[in-house]
Design a protein around this nucleic acid. Structure first.
Lengths: 340, 340
DNA sequence: ATGAAAGCGCTAACAT
DNA sequence: ATGTTAGCGCTTTCAT
């Protein structure tokens, strides 16, 4: 290994070291065009022993192609988004494309900023969580001239394509399952619904379906931050103190549901006999709990995979834009929802 | 909004629309150099209403600066790395720099590939988990001519700088705490130690300290995949069936420890009276459990923050390279370790 | 199968 | 305060 110069190596260095033109070196390094086995060998050896690392900045500028897919999500601490990422990565693995993540913390202004940053790298496509964006963000996405897939949610009109589930329907179906299991006095706990549009839509679907069954939510409580498991405990305890007659608790996510469930079991409640519980997401993490919480699969990995596949197909074929893929989440009754 | 052309907008478009030279447009958009308020205004208006998004590819090539920090970590599903990311993001927030994540899945060959990919974008710095890398990876890092901070671990020689904790010491200190609390018949459960070097080092420190106290591990079990909580349950149950005399269980992470703890409580074990438990990481997620597992803080967010700060200072001052920052994790006895 | 020339969209450096 | 010129390190295109 030569003493590391300050200047990074260029194609020219490899060209000189191997006695082959820059152009041919470039061809070898990208496996494009015909190159004789002999020169190929020479170049590869020279590149390797110089420790040459191509400059994608220059390559991208020259070729006008950037093999990056911008993935814009609200959070990484959430368990659900890492799984979406897994789906995306798997789908992209075989291709040239690479995902790059940006995080918005559920804040529209941050989403706008992150989107702007990412678009300025001229990615080949965008996968972005949710259907709700600021006007500026929508304009950027619409004007970027690249495939855009909005994920997680299908309740609304996508800019280009969408893959997700209907959260309104998810809430509705859970309400129906609860009603037909005979529960009637229902409490709800969840995150503050302001910025989490999907949680809000579930709640709307839930209350609408209850209303159709002549039932109203008896008690509800919202939280903003803190450990979800702990919040679930606290809120559940408070709610049961306030409204001891409740016979079902619907949580906007599995973590707070699990917190509530643990508290219930400790207190000796008869679950799901006298009171039932349900969450949302079907997070694998919790599969080690003594009792399994009723929940609904949010199809996270499949959403990621399908979204990436749409990007890929848009980039090769001229697959028609405008398609929405709505996946169907299943209720998983676990041990906390009476069966009918 | 004009009909979206296929061709993305360039500085030239803004220049023409505003009647100002490209160079001045560039200055306005970057807030550099002196520009009169009047022209500034003109440019900003033109740019906004065209919907111009700068091309960072071109900018980076021209300026030879890329305001990206490559962050290379083993996994995102782990809870610990998202927290490291939080620390990094916070520290970088005020600066021009932006983190970009690459994931290795704990595989050296994938690490090498990801590193190569990231370096080919010529980032301003690298933050990479662990001190163990393939020769090729080490060579790339050493030769990249940019600040490199290896994080999480300080048991070894860094390429450039390092921020982390000594996992050997962590294991040792936990062993000492366990011994001085009077426990003697100790079982260990953890991930297969092959590729998780930090877990291995904790184990080594742990057994070494036990040996110094004349104690040997009585039983041990390793797992590879699956839900950690569930694995913790299963392994604990199996181990207690096999070795009912154990009076302490040390887990290589909090999640399997929590699984074990839940099982123990269900079975009615007297924890920490007849048997103690401890994990590692101090993950906040678990703070809603009925009983708090003894654990040790792995200083994740601070590690991220300090690493990012080192990159920043290297980029401005010529802060001396070669420094290792060793943080001191504290034992948090929770409710599952007798106090002395 | 290989090479030469032109230029991708910006910014550094130097005018003015 | 603003403009002009010359590249950044590659790849495209066209020769040979």
């Amino acid at each position: 290994m030569p003493p590391s110069d300050r200047r990074p190596l260029t194609l020219r260095d490899v060209s000189e070291a191997s006695g082959v033109s820059e152009m041919t070196v470039s061809r070898v390094l990208r496996n494009r065009g015909d190159v004789s086995a002999a020169t190929r060998e020479k170049v590869l050896i020279a590149a390797k022993q110089l420790g040459y690392v191509p400059n994608k900045i220059a390559g991208a500028l020259a070729s006008q192609r950037v093999n990056l897919v911008a993935v814009i999500i609200p959070s990484l601490g959430n368990l659900v988004f890492p799984e979406v990422m897994t789906g995306i990565s798997r789908a992209l693995e075989e291709s040239e494309l690479q995902p790059v993540v940006g995080v918005t913390d559920y804040q529209p202004d941050k989403e706008e900023k992150v989107l702007y940053e990412m678009l300025s790298w001229r990615p080949s496509g965008v996968i972005i969580a949710g259907l709700e964006h600021s006007d500026a963000a929508r304009a950027m996405l619409a004007g970027a001239g690249i495939p855009v897939v909005e994920i997680m949610d299908t309740d609304g009109a996508p800019i280009d394509a969408a893959v997700g589930i209907s959260h309104r329907r998810a809430g509705r179906e859970m309400a129906q399952a609860i009603l037909s299991a005979g529960y009637r006095r229902i409490g709800f706990m969840g995150t503050k619904l302001g910025l989490d549009h999907r949680a809000r839509k579930r709640f709307e679907g839930f209350t609408a379906a209850l209303a159709k069954g002549g039932v109203e939510i008896e008690d509800q409580e919202f939280y903003t931050d803190g450990s979800a498991l702990a919040k679930g405990r606290e809120m559940t305890q408070a709610m049961m103190a306030r409204s001891p007659d409740l016979d079902f608790l619907y949580y906007s996510n599995d973590m707070i549901g699990a917190g509530g469930l643990l508290w219930m079991k400790e207190q000796g409640f008869d679950v799901p006999g006298t009171i039932g519980l349900a969450g949302f997401n079907d997070v694998k993490l919790l599969s080690g709990l003594p009792v399994k919480l009723a929940t609904m699969d949010s199809c996270r990995e499949e959403i990621g995979r399908r979204a990436a596949e749409i990007i890929l197909s848009r980039l090769t074929n001229e697959a028609a834009p405008g398609d929405t893929v709505e996946l169907s989440p299943r209720i998983n009754p676990g041990d906390t929802l009476r069966l009918t």
